[in-house]
């Protein structure tokens, strides 16, 4: 299943890529593949913005705006004016 098209904030700079393959290793949706000694993006729409690729790229070739991706958290953030927060750990009963 793929979510909305053309919304993922994933950016890949192939000039900085050294071909270590970490992004392809950690991406849970196979957004990256290795070809000709470098990574490349297969389908950006498959990106769930978890941030694993950016966190594991030691060369700064990947940027993505990761964060809590549930509606409750984002609505909470809109109401409070802060970052999206789902209240995990509280008694709300819901968590994302």
């Amino acid at each position: 299943m793929i979510y909305l098209a053309d919304v993922a904030t994933l950016q890949f700079d192939s000039d900085r890529c050294t071909g270590c393959g970490m992004c392809a290793e950690v991406c849970p949706h196979g957004v990256f593949i290795m070809a000709n000694g470098k990574a490349s993006v297969t389908d950006k729409d498959m990106c769930m913005e978890c941030g694993a690729c950016e966190n594991n790229c030691a060369f700064g070739a990947i940027t993505v705006t990761s964060g809590v991706g549930c509606a409750s958290a984002i609505i909470n953030g809109m109401i409070t004016g802060g970052e999206p927060s789902c209240g995990c750990g509280s008694d709300s009963g819901a968590c994302c």
């Binding site: 299943m1 979510y3 919304v7 498959m46 991706g69 549930c70 509606a71 958290a73 984002i74 819901a94």
Partner: peptide, 14 residues
């Protein structure tokens, strides 16, 4: 609300 439970939705889309 179920976007918070899936394995494929992202913050930008929501």
């Amino acid at each position: 609300q179920f976007t918070g439970s899936t394995t494929f939705t992202g913050m930008s889309g929501v």
